[in-house]
């Protein structure tokens, strides 16, 4: 099995790491200074932060079980960004302030929408049991 954090995975880890820090910082400041303003949106920011942290950690750790957890967190991330994206357009009252995932991650150049697809594609390429004859740089 190929290392999760080598090759293209190395770039992916960096991007996930940036988002983990960004989302964690954002939710910490939001919940710390103005939790009452938009509790639902800020809780979602926190959820996003945890997902990014888990995904980053799993990619760094590598190994079959980390791979499985990474697949789950990327799937949750995909469902999250899609449902929060739709919800933020449909029910604007729920989102008086923005989250990482509202409007499909518009405030982050839509990267939150692209990232789970990249993550899942990379996890598919590194699935345990897949032949590693082809070396990817």
């Amino acid at each position: 099995m190929r290392e999760l954090s080598s090759g293209p995975g190395r770039m992916l880890v960096f991007v996930y790491g940036v988002f983990a820090v960004a989302a964690t910082g954002r939710s910490a400041i939001q919940l710390g200074t103005e939790a009452g303003n938009a509790p639902f949106a800020y809780t979602l920011s926190l959820v996003a932060a945890v997902i990014y942290l888990v995904a980053t950690t799993c990619l760094l750790l590598g190994g079959p079980s980390a791979w499985r957890v990474a697949v789950v967190s990327c799937a949750v991330e995909l469902v999250g960004v899609l449902s929060v994206g739709v919800l933020s357009y449909v029910d604007t009252e729920l989102f008086p302030d923005k989250t990482v995932w509202s409007h499909f991650g518009q405030g982050y150049a839509f990267l939150p929408l692209v990232l789970p697809f990249l993550g899942l594609a990379w996890l598919r390429a590194t699935a345990p049991g897949r032949a590693t004859a082809r070396s990817v740089r």
């Binding site: 080598s6 090759g7 190395r10 960096f14 790491g17």
Partner: peptide, 23 residues
Amino acid sequence: ALPIGAFWSLAERTRSGTGVLVI
């Protein structure tokens, strides 16, 4: 951002490692 990126890039001297610098 840059120091972490540089160390992360230097830990793997490949095309992807250089890609980390771009990001």
